[in-house]
């Protein structure tokens, strides 16, 4: 029951934060921080709990955003596009995952393939500026992106837009719901088996579990959540551009997870929110290039804080003799895995 109480505490704190957030910062900025949190959660799930390091989480993010935008132009009402924005990247992740896991590719090659696939998508979408690239009535628009689609509305009422503050609450509640679902998933047998696979793939296989299928499913769940984040992002930005697929975007997600901490769900979310906010502040002052700071943070956190912020705080609490149950074997595992690969 400790697990349940922990999750309930986190959700209660997050709920309060959601209510007082708008009095500290404008909801427009808060909303995008939440969306990034959701994106980080998707990688935190498959990397931290499934041991799958995906260098192309942005691919699913971008795919979700594009799927939503294109469907919204064609349909005009946001319910079906919203679902497609989740389903398309999930299906894509499932197929890609099946190809990789059934091929028994090791970590590094997994990284290469996800990275390359992201590049292919980026290059492809970037080159679709011509009028011949059309899906239904929507033009892909190449590097100009796709603007002018229906943003999120109350299901069935195309004129009742969910925007501004209500959109903020919608995103925040979505994040909380997804978080709760993932907590439940990880505690369920499926989640336990996923963690077991991360720990020792061969053992799980010798127990009779189909490791490849389970990894593929987990990867697809991660794709679905990233797609959901992309869908919300499209509705927030009101335009989708090829930049969503960029490697910089993928890199950022990884940085969020590392800094926030692997092996937890709260870590990546908090990491994303803090770093994205930091980037936002840096972007405002214009003195230093935000890339520089981001790079520095990544290097320093790999060297000095390999467990990430949240697990390190947990560890400190434990050392101080306070209660704290969660442990994250992220560091040791990463080391062991990287020795074994290639």
């Amino acid at each position: 029951m400790g697990e349940f109480r922990h999750a309930a505490t986190v959700i209660a704190i997050a709920f309060v934060a959601m209510l007082i957030g708008p009095s500290l910062l404008d909801t427009y900025t808060l909303t995008v921080l939440i969306i990034y949190g959701l994106l980080a959660l998707s990688l935190g799930l498959i990397w931290g709990f499934g041991g799958i390091l995906c260098f192309g989480q942005a691919a699913f993010f971008g795919l979700g955003a594009y799927a939503y935008a294109i469907a919204a132009i064609n349909v005009g009402e946001s319910t079906v596009p919203f679902l497609l924005g989740i389903a398309v990247p999930a299906a894509f992740a499932f197929v890609l995952g099946a190809m990789m896991f059934y091929g028994r590719l090791s970590d590094v090659y997994l990284g290469v393939i996800t990275l390359v696939v992201t590049l292919i998508l980026f290059k492809f979408v970037n080159s679709t500026a011509g009028p011949e690239y059309v899906i239904g009535t929507a033009r892909l628009g190449g590097f100009n992106g796709v603007p002018g689609f229906q943003t999120l509305n109350v299901p069935g009422y195309p004129n009742w837009y969910i925007y501004d503050r209500s959109f903020y609450y919608f995103c925040a509640v979505t994040l909380l719901v997804v978080y709760a679902l993932m907590r439940w998933l990880i505690a369920s047998p499926f989640g336990r088996i996923a963690v077991a696979i991360r720990e020792n793939e061969q053992r799980v296989e010798l127990m009779g579990y189909d490791v490849r299928f389970r990894k593929t499913v987990l990867f697809a769940i991660g794709g679905a959540i990233a797609g959901l984040a992309g869908t919300l992002f499209a509705s927030w930005a009101e335009i989708v551009t090829p930049g969503l697929f960029s490697l910089a975007q993928s890199a950022e997600v990884i940085v969020w997870c590392i800094v926030g901490g692997l092996g937890t769900l709260t870590g990546p979310v908090i990491g994303a929110m803090i770093l994205a906010f930091l980037k936002f502040l840096l972007g405002q002052q214009g003195q230093f290039d935000s890339t520089l700071i981001l790079g520095l943070i990544l290097v320093l956190s790999v060297l000095f804080l390999p467990r990430g912020v949240v697990p390190s705080i947990d560890l400190l609490r434990k050392r101080a003799g306070l209660s704290g149950r969660r442990t994250a074997p992220g560091r040791r595992r990463r080391r062991a895995r990287s020795m074994a690969d290639v």
Partner: peptide, 26 residues
């Protein structure tokens, strides 16, 4: 400090690449 930890090196050098881009821009 990272020899033998392939994934960590990848991450650290990725950070370096961002750092170098930032410096060059500066």
């Amino acid at each position: 400090f990272l020899y033998g930890r392939l994934v960590d090196t990848m991450l650290a050098t990725w950070g370096l690449s961002l750092l170098l881009i930032g410096l060059a821009t500066l």
